[in-house]
C-alpha cells in the first residue's frame, strides 16, 4: 500500500511539474509580456526598461526556474492589473470555486450513480431506456445554455432564486446544477455499464445462492465493485468542472477562480493567468491522486498487490 501510494505520488508530482512547464512557456509564447505591461502608448525605451525591470531579458529557463522557486513558496508576484499580490487575489477567490465544484460533483454523483444502478438492475426495461435518453439529452445541452435556461426559468420567471452573485447558499443552487449536470451522463453510463458487468459476475450468483437479500446483493456485492472505475472518473470530471467553472462563473457572475482567470486573460495579466492555471492543474492532479488512493481502499487487489 505504501509503495503504491508513493508510486502514485511520484506520478502526480511529475504531472504537476509538466503542467508548470507548459503553463509557463505557453504564456511566454502568446505575446511579448513587456509590451503588454508597458501599454500601447509606450516608447521602445520604456519597453526595454520594463523588460529589464521585470527580469524578462533573462534566458527563459532562468525565468522559469525563478518563477517555479517562488511558486513553491506561494509567491506568484503581483498582478499587473489588480494592484494586489496574486496569492491574496487567489485566496479571496478560490473558496467560491471549490464550493461550487464540490457541490456540483456531489450533486452529479447523487443523481448519476443511483440512476446508473437503477438502469443496470432494470436493464432493458423502460426505466433503463428513460435513464439512457436522459443521459443523451444531458450530454447534448452545453453548460452555458443550461445555466441561462435555469436563470430564465427559476430566477427571472419564477423568481425563486437569485440571478447572479455568490453571497448566500441560494446563489450556489443554479450554478451547481448547471455545472454538475455536465458530469451526470458520463458518470451514469459508467455506473450502469459497471453494474451490468458486475451483476453478471460469478460472485453475484454466489451471493444469491447464499440467500442474501436482493438489496444486499446489489449494494454490498455489486456496487462496491462497480464503483471503482466511477471514482477515477469522478476525479477527472471534477477537473473538467474546475475548467467549466470559468464559463459558469461568468454566466452567474460569481467571483471565483474561473471568473478571475477570465478577467486576467482579457487583460493580459500574465502572473494571474499562470498562477490560476497552475493551481487548477494542481488541484486536478491532487484529486486524481486521491482517487487512486481511494481505489486502493476499495479494491484489495490494488491495496495488497
Amino acid at each position: 500500500m505504501l509503495a503504491y501510494t508513493m508510486q502514485r505520488l511520484i506520478v502526480a508530482l511529475s504531472v504537476a511539474f509538466t503542467v508548470s512547464v507548459v503553463a509557463f512557456f505557453l504564456l511566454h509564447l502568446s505575446g511579448d509580456i513587456a509590451i503588454s505591461i508597458a501599454g500601447p502608448e509606450s516608447t521602445p525605451a520604456q519597453v526595454e526598461q520594463i523588460r529589464h525591470q521585470f527580469g524578462l531579458d533573462r534566458p527563459l529557463v532562468v525565468q522559469y526556474l525563478d518563477w517555479l522557486w517562488k511558486a513553491v513558496h506561494f509567491d506568484f508576484g503581483n498582478s499587473f492589473y489588480f494592484r494586489d499580490t496574486v496569492v491574496s487575489l487567489i485566496a479571496s477567490r478560490i473558496g467560491v470555486t471549490l464550493t461550487l465544484g464540490a457541490i456540483s460533483l456531489l450533486l452529479s454523483l447523487v443523481v448519476a450513480v443511483p440512476l446508473g444502478v437503477l438502469a443496470a438492475v432494470y436493464n432493458g426495461t423502460i426505466i433503463d431506456r428513460l435513464a439512457l435518453s436522459f443521459s443523451v439529452i444531458g450530454q447534448a445541452i452545453p453548460t452555458f445554455c443550461l445555466g441561462l435556461g435555469l436563470i430564465i426559468v427559476f430566477s427571472v420567471t419564477l423568481r425563486w432564486l437569485p440571478v447572479s452573485g455568490a453571497s448566500t447558499w441560494k446563489h450556489f443552487i443554479l450554478p451547481s446544477i448547471a455545472l454538475g449536470w455536465y458530469a451526470v451522463p458520463a458518470v451514469m453510463r459508467l455506473s450502469r455499464n459497471g453494474m451490468l458487468e458486475v451483476l453478471s459476475a460469478d460472485y453475484i450468483r454466489t451471493a444469491r445462492a447464499k440467500g442474501v437479500a436482493p438489496a444486499v446483493v446489489i449494494f454490498k456485492h455489486a456496487l462496491r465493485n462497480a464503483i471503482i472505475p466511477v471514482v477515477a472518473l469522478a476525479a477527472v470530471q471534477f477537473g473538467f468542472m474546475l475548467g467549466g467553472s470559468i464559463v459558469i462563473e461568468a454566466v452567474f457572475s460569481m467571483h471565483g477562480l474561473g471568473y478571475l482567470a477570465w478577467e486576467a486573460i482579457a487583460r493580459n495579466d500574465f502572473p494571474v493567468v499562470q498562477a490560476v492555471v497552475l493551481i487548477l492543474a494542481t488541484i486536478y492532479v491532487g484529486l486524481t491522486f486521491l482517487a487512486d488512493v481511494a481505489n486502493a481502499f476499495l479494491d484489495p487487489r490494488i491495496r495488497l498487490a
Binding site: 460469478d202 454466489t206 444469491r208 445462492a209 440467500g211 462496491r224 465493485n225 479494491d299 484489495p300
Partner: peptide, 23 residues
C-alpha cells in the same frame, strides 16, 4: 431465499471468479 444457502447450497465451477474480490 430462506431455503437457498440454508437448506440447499451450491458449489460452483469457477472458484477463481465465484468469490467477491472486494471482501
Amino acid at each position: 431465499r430462506k431455503l437457498r444457502g440454508s437448506r440447499m447450497a451450491m458449489i460452483f465451477q469457477e472458484p477463481m471468479t465465484s468469490l467477491n474480490p472486494a471482501y
